[in-house]
Write a protein that binds this DNA or RNA. Structure first.
Lengths: 122, 122
DNA sequence: AACTTCAGATTACATTCGTAAACGGTAAAA
DNA sequence: TTTTACCGTTTACGAATGTAATCTGAAGTT
């Protein structure tokens, strides 16, 4: 069962603030979307049904927590993209962005360090 | 108007064989999916409507050609993912795969060369 | 000229998604 | 204790998507 785009915005909020009440989530998403309260509640419920989050009663409300870890979600999404578009490999993606001149100086510096470190400790 | 997952498989075929008849596409996709002929034709029509491909009459059939370039599609999809998950930057994605030990030796070698080249010609 | 075939066009239909309104029960207030 | 408010639950509904069957018209065959 996969997380839709809209649902992933809710997950992002919970990854930032854990746990959160539905009001927290509504408030946070109001900053970046036009979603009404019922919309956010629907998304919370769909995520519950998918076991991507948990809900623990706290008096009259619930505290929602992410069950799915962000890193795992990121990994799944990234791997899917790499598989579909770059034969599952990272270097071709970097090459693509390089060709398009979309690597910032910062990117290049970071990549350099990364590669050096990798080369060393092995 | 965006290209759905199923539609993108049709595009991949057209990027490989350009132009292609619907039969070509059906035959090619039969290797990797269970799709019936009408399914593929529906997808071709939806892509036509989206102007992602063109159709030129050739006797009784059509020759289909991609209008959308693969590199552009790849770029749009990759950018969307980077923006949503890595603040729009490439290096953090590479770092993520590095942490997960998903960089192959080949990746590392290629990245090294890439970075060296980038460092030089500028 | 009538019959058949084949490709594209039209129609179909269940599911997921985005977006939200309406309902209902329990805690708080009067 | 009756009323109100609030929060979660249920229902809604159009658009997109995955998947395909059926219709139609023109081309080929007899």
């Amino acid at each position: 069962m996969s997380i839709s785009d809209a649902e992933s915005l809710v997950m992002e909020v919970l990854w930032e603030k854990n746990p959160a009440t539905s009001d927290d989530v509504v408030a946070e998403l109001a900053k970046t979307t036009d979603w009404q309260e019922p919309t956010v509640k629907t998304l919370l419920n769909r995520l519950l049904k998918k076991s991507a989050i948990s809900a623990e009663r706290d008096g009259r409300r619930y505290l929602y927590r992410p069950l799915l870890k962000r890193a795992d979600y990121v990994h799944a999404a990234s791997t899917t993209l790499l598989d579909r578009l770059f034969n599952g490999r990272v270097a071709p993606l970097v090459a693509h962005f390089s060709e398009r001149r979309k690597l910032t100086k910062k990117d290049i510096a970071e990549l350099k360090r990364l590669i050096e470190d990798l080369d060393h400790d092995r």
